[in-house]
């Protein structure tokens, strides 16, 4: 019987909670990169403008590059790290019993 002190028995709940934690970590990494880089290099209108592929360099390295990487990480995470579970109730019960056993 699940209580606050014992591991939960629903495998979908367990995997969802694990994925939630990783999603927060991925968001935080993006936050630090984007806000940190743009704050350091994107708030200087008096400096001569540097371009990368026609895009202001602060925007390329602070937004376009992390956007591409974040999309790649999202794809990787969704395709390889998120677990599949049956959603119809009979199958869920069977999977829970199997896991508990």
């Amino acid at each position: 019987m699940p209580t606050e002190n014992t591991p939960p028995s629903d495998p979908l709940f367990r995997s969802s909670l694990r994925e939630l934690k990783w999603i927060i970590v991925i968001w935080l990494a993006n936050f630090i990169w984007v806000i940190g880089y743009c704050w350091l290099f994107g708030y200087s209108p008096d400096q001569p403008i540097a371009l990368t592929f026609g895009i202001p360099s602060w925007a390329f390295w602070g937004i376009f590059a992390p956007w591409g990487l974040a999309t790649a990480v999202s794809c990787w995470f969704a395709l390889t790290q998120m677990r599949d579970h049956p959603l119809d109730l009979d199958a869920t019960d069977k999977q829970t019993e199997a896991t508990d056993a």
């Binding site: 991925i26 984007v34 925007a59 937004i63 974040a70």
Partner: peptide, 22 residues
Amino acid sequence: LALWIAGYIIVPLVSMGLMGKR
């Protein structure tokens, strides 16, 4: 505006992955 909208970097993963399955 590129910085203004930059939060959309992670919108699909957060808005769908955070609660979707559960």
